[in-house]
């Protein structure tokens, strides 16, 4: 307890299910009794708040306000415990805070136009861990390798790279793995998502591990069940017996043991 570890969850391209996995893994940690923060640094296309059942009207202060000096970062943290707990039968014994990005078009445009002082992110992460007494801070990053993403990766204690089993993701992941190694990230895991059922998962895991020389924490199947939920809930809490939920718990167990 009181570890204050930073876990970044990244993917080279969008659409890998990064936000969904971030929300689910962080919720598993909260269910285990940890104090967890989830920060949406995908400022250009925010989305993780939806998984926690939050809508635009419920977001007052956001990460954008902190980055432009309008408030302290802890003022942008929303306690998700009640929301997450309400969706399933699992009792959330820990705490889960969400730091959303602004959904306002004007705010998003401002970031794209003016950028922001990337260094503020680092200060913000440290403040959050200290003020909210976080055991783990999960960072839902922006796909690609821009400056804020590089910073998130650089200051992570553990990095999870999500990829789909296709050539474009393999190529992008190769670059991401190399860059992360240059940044001396202490722990790096890969998670393969949306694997079609005809693939031999064990074989896929082995091939990916030897190609990237990095451990694969889990291979998640392409799940129609998960898609049907349409990103409106924490799947692994609502359907704990599903094969996808088991894989999510595997990831949580590996992360817990490593960081």
């Amino acid at each position: 307890m009181g570890k204050g570890k930073i876990i970044s969850i990244h993917s080279f391209r969008g659409g890998t299910g990064k936000s969904n996995i971030t929300a689910n893994v962080s919720a598993q940690f909260a269910a285990k009794g940890y104090r967890v923060g989830v920060i949406d640094t995908d400022i250009q296309s925010p989305g993780i708040h939806v998984l926690f059942g939050m809508n635009e009207e419920q977001i007052d202060k956001s990460l954008n306000d902190y980055l432009y000096g309008r408030c302290k970062i802890q003022e942008t943290a929303y306690d998700m415990g009640a929301r997450v707990g309400a969706s399933g039968d699992i009792e959330i014994s820990g705490k889960i805070y969400l730091i959303p990005s602004s959904l306002r078009a004007g705010e998003i445009a401002k970031v794209l136009r003016e950028g922001y002082e990337v260094g503020l992110l680092n200060d913000g992460f440290r403040s959050l861990i200290k003020e909210l007494k976080l055991d783990y801070l999960f960072i839902d990053t922006h796909p690609g390798l821009n400056e804020e993403t590089l910073l998130s990766i650089a200051i992570s204690d553990l990095l999870i790279i999500i990829l789909r089993p296709d050539q474009q993701d393999f190529q992008g992941t190769a670059v991401t793995v190399d860059v992360s190694r240059k940044l001396e990230v202490p722990q790096l895991f890969l998670v393969i998502n949306k694997a079609i059922s005809s693939l031999d998962f064990a074989d896929l895991k082995k091939t990916v591990e030897s190609t990237f020389e990095a451990p694969v924490a889990a291979v998640l199947p392409l799940s129609e069940d998960m898609a049907r939920l349409a990103s409106s809930d924490i799947f692994s809490l609502r359907f704990p017996d599903h094969v996808v939920s088991q894989a999510i718990r595997d990831i949580a167990a590996i992360v817990e043991a490593a960081a």
Binding site: Q167, F170, Q171, A174, S198, D200, T211
Partner: peptide, 16 residues
Amino acid sequence: RKEVAQLRIEIDEERR
């Protein structure tokens, strides 16, 4: 199944 299972991972090392 064999064809699919042997999903090749081709990485363009130059581009990488």
